[in-house]
């Protein structure tokens, strides 16, 4: 091959490579444009939100309670926090509704099955309808998921089974993990795309063997379910909880977590003192959201606790392998 021929071949090669690169670029751009979502949830920066100054917290007489069965609080436009009325069930659990493009995810379904007493489906459908109107979307999908597998968090699950356009994740460990794509529970940390909203999900057993924690990169909320909240942390597996708490700390190290949110309030505003189990009235509740300093205290506890028992900290009580109904409330 002479010099001219080799040069021509080189130019031809370069042009060919450039042509392929341009074709791939055009395809990539066109594909991205096609699936460009109307809403964006950037993880840089932080979507702010607010908590109520106080949550509805039951009443002296549960029978005479006139509060709504489900309190709905919009943390921001695409994040809703729901609470079951404590007069209906003393657990007063918090549930979460996250929105992405074309999809919403309901995490947990409360402690009461009866739609007459606890019309969760009706409330969720209303929120979704209003959200769709506000954001010019229609027929969005609903995913019904759970933080963990305890009955006080899925009692109203059945209200959604016949709902159109709904994915029921399921109430077994295997179904849950298959949905999130967690192949190696609890170590694996996966990223779930909720309509363009990036959720980082990982296993956090200790309270229950299928529990998950979720970090929402858009709001910087870290959802810790029942394994860490202001209350009695009932731990069936201490070693697992230790690993989970330390993992939450590592997640918080890597991400700019702003609040830790969860499922219950059982502590009073007075440090180290909880409300009695079963109370349907909790005046002067502390906020539900927790701070990273509280997480640090939990991490410290993992080094201090070394045997079964009840351990009292300012913002939570550790019930290490203690039957849950035993209590120090008095």
């Amino acid at each position: 091959m002479n010099k001219n021929s080799a040069g021509f071949t080189n130019i031809k090669t370069i042009v060919s490579v450039a042509f392929v690169a341009v074709c791939v670029a055009v395809f990539d751009v066109a594909f991205s444009a096609l699936k460009e979502p109307p809403l964006t949830f950037p993880i840089d920066g932080r979507a702010s939100g607010t908590f109520p100054s106080e949550w509805i917290h039951g009443s002296k007489s549960a029978m005479d309670n006139t509060d709504p069965a489900v309190q709905v609080h919009a943390y921001n436009d695409h994040t809703f926090i729901l609470r079951e009325n404590k007069a209906i069930n003393y657990e007063g659990v918090f549930m979460y509704l996250f929105f992405g493009n074309g999809v919403a995810m309901l995490i947990d379904q409360g402690s009461t099955s009866s739609p007459a007493l606890f019309p969760l489906r009706e409330v969720v459908d209303k929120i979704i309808r209003e959200w769709e109107e506000q954001h010019q979307q229609s027929d969005i999908e609903l995913i019904v998921a759970n933080s963990h597998l305890h009955g006080d968090h899925y009692a109203a699950w059945n209200q959604f089974v016949d709902r159109p356009n709904t994915i029921m994740v399921g109430l077994t460990h295997e179904e849950m993990m298959a949905f999130w794509g967690i192949d190696n529970y609890p170590q694996e940390i996966v990223t779930y795309d909720l309509g363009g909203r990036e959720l980082v999900v990982t296993g956090t057993p200790g309270h229950q063997g299928s529990e998950l924690a979720i970090y929402d990169g858009w709001t910087d909320l870290l959802y810790t379910g029942d394994m860490f909240y202001r209350g009695r942390l009932y731990l069936e597996d201490w070693d697992a909880w230790v690993a989970s708490i330390r993992k939450l700390r590592r997640i918080a190290d890597r991400n700019p977590v702003v609040h830790l949110v969860n499922n219950h309030i059982e502590m009073t505003a007075e440090p180290g003192i909880d409300y009695p189990i079963g109370t349907t009235w909790q005046p002067n509740e502390p906020p539900m959201q927790m701070t990273l300093e509280m997480l640090d205290q939990a991490v410290e506890a993992t080094y201090e606790v070394n045997s079964p028992g009840i351990y009292i900290y300012d913002d939570f009580l550790i019930y290490n392998q203690i039957p849950w109904y035993t209590t120090t409330d008095l």
Binding site: K60, I88, D152, I273, T279, T280, W281
Partner: peptide
């Protein structure tokens, strides 16, 4: 003492709560 004062009204509200605690033994 303060804690007791806080607790007494709660104790009065316990009867309906225990009656609804069926999820525990589902």
């Amino acid at each position: 003492v303060c804690r007791l004062m806080l607790w007494v009204p709660f104790a009065l509200s316990l009867v309906p709560a225990t009656a609804s605690a069926h999820l525990l033994n589902m």
